[in-house]
Amino acid sequence: MSQSIFTGRSRMAAVLAIGLTAAAMSAPSGAKAAEPGADEVWQGLVTDVFEGKPMQDGTGIVSLEAPARAADPALVPVTLSVDPTRHIRKLTLVIDHNPAPVAASFTLGDGAGVTRIETRVRVNAYTDIHLVGEADDGTLYVTSRYVKAAGGCAAPASKDPAAAARSIGQMKLRRFGAAEGSGGTRDEAQLMIRHPNNSGLQKDQVTLLYIPAHFITELTVARGERTLFTMEGGISISEDPSFRFDYRADTPEPFHVKAVDTENMTFAHDFPADAS
């Protein structure tokens, strides 16, 4: 298990590195990525990220919601969901035309009842976004959405860098009670983390070097003794990462959250069982 996570991470790191090199050579153009040829890009990603494994049509098994046109390319809401009866254990979100296409990879905890995760991503060009779900038996299911947005990655991470630096690592957990349509079997919560999640795609005009990326790479969200989900993240997760998710409603338990970023800073926070 731990070995497969490690393999996944190094693969993602490789994709990330390739992406950054490409971005450094051709400055983000904000141009509209044409739809023709998009398939080639995706096929390349299937090879690089998923070792060329065959993928099944994910309709009804995994689903992805995203706006057709983003209001703010630095904050594009996306919702990943799974059919709870299909034993999907891992969800990988790929933004095909982003400089580092793998936005995040979520591993769902056994028996945690997580069927839906909403987050916000940066989108750098008109692009397909793919969601790949991996079932317990290793089968991959894919679905996608086309999103019109541009410039989200190269946009500075923060509207107020000084304020962002002061608040890094703060966390907030909101609880919404019973999740919609769950018949009371699942509750819903939102975890928010203050972090610039800097994409590293801004150039320092004095040194002409790219400012180093600084983002959350690992996140674990647990409730009591049970892991709800873990995430391996990339530069495409928006500043101040937010995750709204459902989970099996049972006895009250405290939440434990741990995040690690690219500078090996660790942010941990416990939220009591009954806090609102």
Partner: peptide
């Protein structure tokens, strides 16, 4: 005093979007 950094961070984006 924040202007120099703010312009530097956005330079590529601004030029690209204004070219469009």
């Amino acid at each position: 005093a924040a202007l120099g950094d703010a312009l530097a961070a956005r330079s590529d984006t601004y030029l690209a979007s204004y070219r469009d």
